[in-house]
Design a protein around this nucleic acid. Sequence first.
DNA 1: CCGTAACGATGAGGTATGTCAAGAAAGCAA
DNA 2: TTGCTTTCTTGACATACCTCATCGTTACGG
Lengths: 193, 193
Amino acid sequence: MSAGFEVFRDYVTRHTQLSEVDFGTLEAAAKPKKLRKHQYLLQEGDVCRYHCFITKGLLRTYAVDEKGNEHVIRFAMENWWISDRESLLTEQPSKFNIDAIEDSEVLLFDKSTMQMLTDSIPAFAKMVTGVLDKSFITSQTRIHEAISSTAEEKYNTFVQRYPGFALRAPQSMIASYLGIKPETLSRLRNKKH
Amino acid sequence: MSAGFEVFRDYVTRHTQLSEVDFGTLEAAAKPKKLRKHQYLLQEGDVCRYHCFITKGLLRTYAVDEKGNEHVIRFAMENWWISDRESLLTEQPSKFNIDAIEDSEVLLFDKSTMQMLTDSIPAFAKMVTGVLDKSFITSQTRIHEAISSTAEEKYNTFVQRYPGFALRAPQSMIASYLGIKPETLSRLRNKKH
DNA sequence: CCGTAACGATGAGGTATGTCAAGAAAGCAA
DNA sequence: TTGCTTTCTTGACATACCTCATCGTTACGG
């Protein structure tokens, strides 16, 4: 068993209970992939074909606006899923880019494979829906914070909630994620005492 | 069949195919409820017990911060679902309020009933997951806009995407939803030529 | 280990949006 | 209708955050 699948196996075990046969099915379905720092998992304009589970490293989803500014939509690290669900669902070109912030490793599950897995392993289907449910809740929380907090409050909340991202991602990307300029974030960080 | 269920039946028919038996099961499970303008569907501190489908009217989810300011998290009208998924999932007190902006009618499905329905009607389960998936995608889009757009861009996008909300909700609530002050929204609207 | 490039820090000044206050308009109850 | 309340508009001013430019620091490929 690959190191990558071991991480995934632990993750699944933490969320549901599956037979050895089911784990075999999962392992056969997962395509491991390594990504070097700065390498793309998905590029704007391409159709997103995979649900990706991260077994190692740190990735980001970002969009580029007309003026060429990057906007980080989200970060994701070990034990997180990442994809463009909209492109995956509609099979239309993605508006987003996903790339590696660190050297990373992921497991790819293409759309039809995922369908097969959720159809044949109900407990796995339930886990996947549970993940989606939590993702939605997290998004609602972020929206709440985005519309109601100052830059400083957003940053403090971010650091508390995601210390891993705060330590591992460059400040310019964190600023982008928070919807503020890097200079503003720098000042915020340095004004503390 | 009540007028409310008729709306729901049409909605379900648009999204999936169900037998008459299944529709009977749904109708038996749905508790209709009328809400007068300003009436609460959920109050902060209470545990959210229901998935609610709106058959008539307009509701909002909002949070109140320490300073007493209201922040509108979302609007929802006919053919939309509304609830606090976090409270529903965890059975912890909600941080949000949901109330009626207009006289409204909803169908309530409590958590265990919903579980029973999705367990016994796979097509319905699939539809519900599909709705959640779309909700998540919508949230991601809103986050993207929140971090990358000016107040004016946010307002224009909002009007285009949700003309119904733009016409039916008071401006102070729309401003709150966009994360800006009512005065700012008023100026934006009136500066056009 | 060096040189270059990317990143972060900091200053000066600008702009979008917020705050507070007053008045006009619109909704609503009697 | 009338009067009362809530919502919207508008102005003057405050401020959080942005922009642009510069410089120090860190990362990294050769």
